[in-house]
Write a protein that binds this DNA or RNA. Sequence first.
DNA 1: TCCTGTCGCTTAATCGTTCAATCAGGAGAC
DNA 2: GTCTCCTGATTGAACGATTAAGCGACAGGA
Lengths: 325, 325
Amino acid sequence: MASIKKIANDIGVSTATVSNALTGKGRVSEEMASRIKERADELGYRPSIAARALKTGQTGILGLVMPDLTNPLFPRIAQTLAIEADQRKMGVLIADSRGDAAEQSRAFKRLLARGVDGILVVPQKGTSPEPMPVPVVVINTASDPLNSVSADHAHGGSLVARHVADIGHRRVMILGGDPVSEVQRDRIKGMVQALRDDIEVNTSWGDEGVKKAVECVQAGVTAIMTTSDLIALRVRSNLIRKNIAVPDHVSLTGFDNMAFAPIMHPSLTTVAQNVGEIASRAIAIMDSKISGAIPDDEGETVPMRLVVRQSTSIPTHQAHRRRIP
Amino acid sequence: MASIKKIANDIGVSTATVSNALTGKGRVSEEMASRIKERADELGYRPSIAARALKTGQTGILGLVMPDLTNPLFPRIAQTLAIEADQRKMGVLIADSRGDAAEQSRAFKRLLARGVDGILVVPQKGTSPEPMPVPVVVINTASDPLNSVSADHAHGGSLVARHVADIGHRRVMILGGDPVSEVQRDRIKGMVQALRDDIEVNTSWGDEGVKKAVECVQAGVTAIMTTSDLIALRVRSNLIRKNIAVPDHVSLTGFDNMAFAPIMHPSLTTVAQNVGEIASRAIAIMDSKISGAIPDDEGETVPMRLVVRQSTSIPTHQAHRRRIP
DNA sequence: TCCTGTCGCTTAATCGTTCAATCAGGAGAC
DNA sequence: GTCTCCTGATTGAACGATTAAGCGACAGGA
């Protein structure tokens, strides 16, 4: 309602002076500036984002593209991103890239058409966002050459693996969800590297992997490390059916510290991302990219945190050692 | 880059004609219109949202306020909302209201300052959004007088209660998370109403309720109905500790069909919201409110769906009937 | 006295669209 | 031949901010 013009008229100065006073850019006397500010909030003045955007070419809006908003991590990322962006006077527009790479690039187009100042993207598994006319911040994993900032998934993997090795396990199974995912590959890479040579490691993926888990345990594996709490939960359910106790018979670990991890039984040992820190850095990087300061090209990495709960313990039960199928 | 002016110059007409041709509003000859459109996409013309917003006063952006983005339902709501909004050429800006009512109204302010055309809100438990200068669509529950559209939580409650009663349970416990939540109260109301008079019902809330659950079972309750899958999982964990089998000893139900419900053991009988339909209707209502068509003031309600899994079965185990503590 | 510099403010253009008002010109009615 | 109506296109003024350039006035130095 109240425009810069209204304020200018009321006080009897030009709109330019009002603009200068309010943004603190030009040369305005102390006294005039405070008179203007006073009148401005008397009127409840709010600058028109649209007008400013038109003139300056900047909308103050960031686009957020996520592969699948149902990703359980999405809420926390979105939340922190929104808060952090807000502190820099920016808004976050969401765009869903529902499953495939084509939809992902359509999401980019939509956001660009809306005139976003930059795009934050958690890329679709196995895809790289094409070059774009606005700054892009990629949240993926260290091994992605385009990665701007992410959790140190490999380090997370090493943390959990070292924990498992330290408490005495010598035959472990690693279980991933989808080998296409760079994130999961990095997690597993970290696990493998952390295990000393005298430890027997067996890696499987996906649904067959989950089934195989039971066989492995029966063959003498004493710990199963997964790349996701959801996978861990599925394994846990299968183990219950076979009457295999966790952690007494086999230890189990997840990844991401999802909502159910602390309340399932036994509570799940897992690795937590510092999502807040990641989002906060992502916005910081975006901010400097937008303002032209070219930040160090290398991707940043945020440490993960091992959360030890009751699903891991020293291997008490020793099955007859057999060949792993 | 390419503006309406550029096209006008190239073809040799006025900008007004170009605008008319592109939006299909004024009077333009067929031939001229197609020449203009052709040139427009030769140049890759995209209208400037900012300029249009400035002129029309409409930004084409909707604000989405959720009490806590970590709400596990948020992703699905946000996703469908985003998709549905996009089909109407609108964008969705997220705002987090982190916990308290004050932050919720601050979120409104932020969105309004950005010039959103309307606000979609999943209100903070026990709060009502204040009147606002733009249309507001409230997604809550039928008993909220401001509710625009929501799942029929009471009906969902009755569905699950009837299921439990039908398979033969006569002593049941109802377990809610927080009595401040209208949604949970409606769910419980539905449960209670659906149970026939000869069924003994015991209602508890929160942490103490979860503890009490074990006692209730020991006292002869054969089914526990909760208002959330998360609560159900916690109960399940407690029961395991006491060696009480589900569903053999006691049946258990959740609400919301969260990601872990099908993969926990036993898989959880629960009630699913048709989130897609809710979001889709929310956008439709918003659309008509924005375009001035005043829709029927009454809140709409979307049916819920009972998902029967393995956590419920006929009561086989009959404990000695005791007084429920 | 004249020149130069700074301060405080104004002028005016501009961003890209929309839209009410207007205008040119041909068709048809009388 | 004049008057009216309709069609297709134009004009020009907004919308609300930003910003480069300009302009008095006054101060200080030579």
